[in-house]
Amino acid sequence: MNRPFLIFVARHSVTIALSLMFLAPLVFLFLTSMMTSNQTFTTEIWPQSWHPENYATVFEKAPLLRYLLNTVMYAVLATIFMLLSSVPAAYGLAKLRWRGRNTTMVLIICLMMLPPQVSTIPMYLFWANAGLTGTLWPAILPLLAGDAFAIFLLRQFMVTIPDEYLDAAKVDGAGEWKTMFKVVLPMARPGIAAAAMFQFFYAWNDYYYPLLYTSENQDNWTVSLGIASFKYAHHVEWELVSAATMITMIPVIVLFFFAQKAFVQGVTLTGVKG
């Protein structure tokens, strides 16, 4: 056998081994979700008998449906609000000239990098005064005032759109708003899709804000909070925890396969070039 072939095999075996390692946690989680409660405390990895009914049981034992609906509401509203506020801001930063633009951009990057814990106490006080603690609104409403990461991402995307297209529209008498809607938005569709996806996933996966704002009101919990507290509600039933965990992952996986391209593009865009 020649050397290049050996290298090829070696290379692929590494990649394949790596793939297995990446998949193993998911597979194991799935297998556990199919076990009996007793088997989860044994070293056996393969279910002795299959119990898909665990997936139904988990809906009875915890208000998982409620959690899912809350999470969907959080993720959908957050995404819509983010787009309404951040797309114009990104356009303003990418395509318009005005005093304070660079400073604003620096501040937005600072805000993007700011750990959420830094502003937690003042924001909690703010929402307590507004009477909205105990609900998910303190996590949703801020998106009406823009999301720093989305603005940054969209701005990076819009900068790459040549000014000539915009000038052409303006020659035809279009104002800035019209130019944004008619010219830039259609061209920035992949960027907008990526920003929307990121926001959706951020909200879907979020643990911190639901923990902070809705702890005391179980009616408003999200799935992440529900799962993290599952064990805490007196019993640890690994097969049910695993089933619930699988359920939270499914929408993420499905959406990802449909919108993989937008994602990859979005991630690449936020990394820096040169």
């Binding site: 909690y124 929402w127 307590a128 603690t133 105990g134 702890s215 005391e216 509600a233």
Partner: peptide
Amino acid sequence: AKGGQDDAKTTQAIGAGQ
């Protein structure tokens, strides 16, 4: 009556006026 509450949640809720 609401079950499953804990001290941290009660403290937070009283502080927030709820």
